[in-house]
Design a protein around this nucleic acid. Structure first.
Length: 270
DNA sequence: CTGGTCACCTGGAAGC
DNA sequence: TGCTTCCAGGTGACCA
């Protein structure tokens, strides 16, 4: 589920409540996510103050004095704040207990990850190779043009390559390329500088709109019972195969690109 | 290095 | 109703 906006919304939702508070205890109910959970997590974390929550790509970084707890939500993960009395559900694998509140990790598919790093987080093998942040100023048309020279892979796959650009997942890649008017199959290296400018603007606008949409439901999102899932945004093409394009009325097409469903308007995107 | 494919795991929806 | 099949928002590992 979560792409960059959902992860960032999660982070912002937790910021008013958690930093500065002490982790009293940790409960682990399922030790195997994408990787095994760090052993003796309770001993590592209990008694320490959560100093801050940062984000790198889709990874959330919980900063403590002795180290950093990295959390990735995978495909189906979510973090919520619940009252201490709330009984855990079937897929609630990890609780960080802060007094009367619990930070609870739910992840039915268990593609997420929880990792403990003692030293420099940026040197961790999962973090070090990550690409640039799409909402930073580094991500510009000039950068994209340079980075794609000589690359044959489809632009959609390039946008989704976390070693190039972080945080752009399958939904927002389709949405961004629709906004940019670019066919997702276009070889990245063939894009003109002008089209790179358009794509960069579109990615920033798409992620920005999702952040704004999530921001409006932020408190419900973090403090809800979880039944509502992720916040909804009206998609322009994603999930709309066969339906009319919202701009021109042509049938939205669905095809596989890198084994991921890809939606686009054959008339608006060339 | 690059690009392409597979695997990890569960649940919900669609099809019969 | 119940079974089967397909599909899902991520990404590291592995291959040629």
């Amino acid at each position: 589920m979560p792409e960059l906006p959902e992860v960032e919304i999660t982070r912002r939702g937790l910021l008013p409540d958690l930093p500065g508070r002490k982790i009293d205890a940790v409960v682990v109910r399922h030790t195997m996510l994408r990787y095994p959970l760090p052993p003796a997590l309770d001993r590592l974390l209990a008694g320490h103050i959560l100093r801050g929550i940062d984000r790198r790509g889709k990874y959330l970084l919980f900063r403590l004095d002795p180290g950093t707890l990295i959390v990735h939500l995978g495909m189906s993960g979510s973090l919520r704040l619940v009252p201490a009395a709330e009984p855990p559900g079937k897929h609630d694998h990890l609780d960080l207990i802060f007094g009367a509140s619990i930070l609870r990790l739910r992840d039915p598919r268990r593609f997420g990850a929880v990792i403990w790093v003692k030293g420099q987080v940026n040197a961790h093998p999962l973090i070090a190779p990550l690409g640039i942040e799409p909402l930073s100023n580094v991500f510009s048309g000039g950068w994209l043009h340079d980075a794609t020279r000589g690359r044959a892979k489809a632009i959609k796959l390039f946008l989704m390559d976390s070693h190039a650009i972080v945080g752009v997942g399958n939904i927002y890649a389709s949405e961004s390329l629709f906004r940019a008017g670019v066919d997702p199959r276009t070889p990245a290296g063939k894009l003109s500088r002008k089209r790179c400018d358009r794509i960069v603007s579109a990615v920033k606008a798409t992620l920005g709109a999702a952040l704004a949409a999530g921001g409006s439901t932020l408190r419900d999102f973090i403090h809800s019972d979880g039944s509502s899932g992720w916040f909804q945004m009206q998609h322009l093409v994603y999930g709309r195969g066969g339906e009319p394009c919202r701009l021109c009325g042509a049938k939205v097409r669905l095809l596989q690109l890198g084994q991921r469903s890809t939606f686009f308007c054959p008339r608006c995107q060339r």
